[in-house]
Design a protein around this nucleic acid. Structure first.
Lengths: 202, 202
DNA sequence: CCAAATAAGAAACTTTAAGTATCTTAAAGA
DNA sequence: TCTTTAAGATACTTAAAGTTTCTTATTTGG
């Protein structure tokens, strides 16, 4: 039916576009060459000739997106804040608003391809893990209050969970978590943050 | 050959054990009922009769592990520190050392099932994303130094990347990231941490 | 202690999807 | 216009998921 054939860069763009749509809706686990071919209105052999695996196609599709979106890059945000805090907020807002292409697809597609029952079970599990983490931190905070280092234990939950979230992320990303990182976490991040919110006048 | 047949709880334990071994070595994407059956020395129909999907089997296998390891739970660590910092370090160390069952399997198995070529490409991509993040923060820090809020921009990389890591993790885990979280991040965590390391005497 | 019910384990089968080969023909370049 | 290159269609091969059937070990209850 199609008497016009796309090729080269034209075709490539369509394939990357189709790939990203599948990644965003169904996730990495559901990305197959057959689906990409169908969505891009081409055929399987074309995809197989050009790309090695669905995974590498996914990487290239995301890189393509990053290149295309160059204008909105995080490190080119116009900084207009009157203070460190204001500037940081701008960057953080921009980051969450546009969520860089990598994060969105790779992070967000983890739990895709999981049915409803499983999803509920997973949620419950995450909750119980979080409870354990909170208990652990609360015990530490109570001791600190008893010692007179803090004035209370009622910090935001997000702040209490920060160390665990951060450590999990680093392990996930394959970044080193050694004594130096733990030291930084405790002395450079947690203690200052806790003292800032609930510190004693001294 | 096997004239003895396991059943009930006995069999269940063997299946969960096998499931966890596969999760730890090959990752979630490689977890199939056939492999579990083989490793647990049973047969496919047995697995299909008891569990719905590989994913739900994985969840149950991990919960089973958590129950079994109850003694070593994070919120039962013996706290012996003489200060807030010392106690926090104990908890953080324990967390990284034993990495709770959930984190280990689900976080660590993300990038399993990825071949060598892809893995290299992925690493490179992560690096370039990190570079963008670092640039964005450095610009903010320079402005803060110019204003006199900080004495220098040479903070540990981990600290500079903290906001991005944390936000990515929360999005991944499906936890809310709204204005309140951003405010907490900036005012309650980042500014105190930066000022602690590179603040002016004021 | 024996008989009936239950569930494990083996093997073979069906179905589905991934991956490959072949061929025709549109598009690009000389 | 002729030659080369690569897209797109179709059909095929292979492999793994999921299912069925049957046999027999284990448990339970009379």
């Amino acid at each position: 039916m199609t008497q016009t054939r796309r090729r080269g860069a034209d075709l490539e763009r369509a394939v990357y576009q189709a790939t990203r749509e599948i990644l965003n809706t169904e996730g990495l686990s559901q990305l197959t060459f057959a689906k990409v071919a169908a969505k891009a209105q081409t055929s399987k052999p074309v995809i197989y000739r050009h790309w090695e695996t669905p995974f590498s196609l996914a990487l290239l599709a995301i890189q393509d997106k990053i290149k295309a979106d160059n204008h909105g890059q995080l490190d080119q945000v116009v900084l207009t804040g009157e203070s460190l805090a204001a500037d940081l907020l701008l960057v953080a807002q921009r980051f969450t608003a546009s969520m860089d292409a990598f994060g969105k697809t790779f992070m967000g597609s983890w739990f895709e391809g999981v049915n409803h029952d499983d999803s509920a079970q997973l949620k419950q599990m995450l909750t119980s893990v979080r409870q354990i983490d909170l208990n652990a931190i609360d015990r530490v905070l109570k001791r600190a209050v008893a010692r007179g280092e803090l004035t209370g234990t009622d910090l935001p939950e997000s702040l209490k969970l920060l160390p665990f979230d951060w450590l999990r992320y680093r392990m996930l990303a394959g970044e080193p978590v050694g004594p130096a990182e733990l030291q930084l976490l405790v002395d450079g991040i947690l203690v200052p943050a806790y003292v800032h919110t609930r510190g004693t006048a001294d």
